[in-house]
């Protein structure tokens, strides 16, 4: 490793620790959220340095981007009661000092044990060689895509299911199934509106590109889905209300289609004597592409719906409060 690269890595590692600590102990919730977002971005750089561009993309898009939006959005509802974060460690000074010391010592000890465990880890070899060797039969050229959508497609399918479950969980917590239109129309901000007109088509294009790229290079459904969701959120902020205008059938099918189609595909070749999630080798490539397109749509829609639902919930809650 060259000296500048080593310096960069050291700096990244240091920054990660500082930001992580900052995200925990910043005096206000807002500062915690900002530190957390910066932590996500730095972490994605670290993944890139570790030659894991797929993880880096996902971390930047989900860890920093989407979670950041959801955090800041929720903070707006919190901050009416003040966003002082210092009370987490106890109200009076001695308690706070004591709990901080205990937590810091515990964390350090845990980190030390974990570090030693990693340092002593025997060389397991991993599955890289096997993954590469089976690549010609997988229908795609990028090993990560092959693992996600062919070798371990069962896990990926369940993960997409987790998103549907998460949406249902949010409906449960919010108390209604569906999306409420805010009572007063959105404030039209010409800057945001023209920005949205400019950015949204571009982002949809980037999503499509990431999706197509996934066949042979880092990228794929999850990353593309998040970019699509970002476009959806920007349009929402500009007052487009796309989700609220969808019919119930449309958003339900939109949320479920990625998971449902994946399942249908998984069983559809079983009458031909193939196994669960087994595709004919010649068709694997195109089929995986269709799964990825539908999964991208579902993921993008689900993540946008998270945001839209929280917004609608905040609106209905503040309505309840003013009454």
């Amino acid at each position: 490793m060259s000296l500048p690269a080593g310096l960069l890595d050291g700096l990244l590692a240091l920054l990660l620790v500082i930001l992580a600590v900052r995200a925990l102990i910043a005096p206000t919730l807002y500062q915690c959220a900002v530190a957390f977002i910066s932590f996500g971005l730095t972490l994605s750089l670290a993944w890139a340095r570790l030659a894991a561009p797929d993880v880096a993309l996902a971390e930047a898009a989900i860890g920093a981007g989407l979670l950041g939006v959801l955090l800041i959005n929720s903070l707006r509802d919190f901050s009416r009661g003040g966003d002082d974060a210092s009370a987490i460690f106890g109200k009076d000074l001695p308690t706070a000092l004591f709990s901080r010391t205990v937590i810091s010592c515990g964390t350090l000890a845990f980190a030390a044990v974990l570090g030693m465990a990693m340092f002593h880890m025997p060389e397991g070899g991993g599955l890289t060689a096997l993954t590469e060797a089976s690549l010609p039969h997988s229908g795609v050229e990028h090993p990560v895509t092959a693992v996600l959508l062919n070798y371990r497609s069962y896990d990926t399918w369940l993960e997409i299911g987790v998103l549907v479950v998460a949406m249902l969980a949010i409906f449960c917590a919010g108390g209604f199934e569906g999306f409420r239109r805010p009572e007063q129309g959105p404030d039209s901000d010409p800057v945001i509106e023209s920005l949205a007109r400019l950015l949204a088509p571009l982002m949809v294009m980037v999503a499509g590109y990431l999706l197509w790229l996934g066949k042979a290079y880092p990228g794929g459904a999850f990353q593309a889905g998040v970019v699509l969701a970002a476009a959806g959120i920007i349009l929402q902020l500009a007052g487009w209300q796309i989700i609220e205008n969808l019919s119930t059938w449309a958003w339900k099918w939109g949320l479920g289609i990625g998971f449902f189609f994946f399942l249908a595909l998984a069983v559809s070749f079983m009458p031909l004597g193939l196994g669960f999630f087994e595709y004919p080798e010649a068709w694997a490539g195109p089929l995986i592409l269709v799964v990825e397109v539908l999964a991208t749509l579902s993921i993008g829609l689900t993540l946008t719906c998270f945001f839209v639902y929280f917004n609608g919930m905040g609106a209905s809650e503040s309505r309840r409060r003013t009454r």
């Binding site: 599955l127 096997l130 993954t131 089976s134 062919n150 070798y151 371990r152 497609s153 069962y154 896990d155 193939l274 196994g275 669960f276 999630f277 087994e278």
Partner: peptide
């Protein structure tokens, strides 16, 4: 599952 034997498959 998926016609892939462990360790590659599940």
């Amino acid at each position: 599952i998926g016609g892939w034997a462990p360790p590659l498959g599940i």
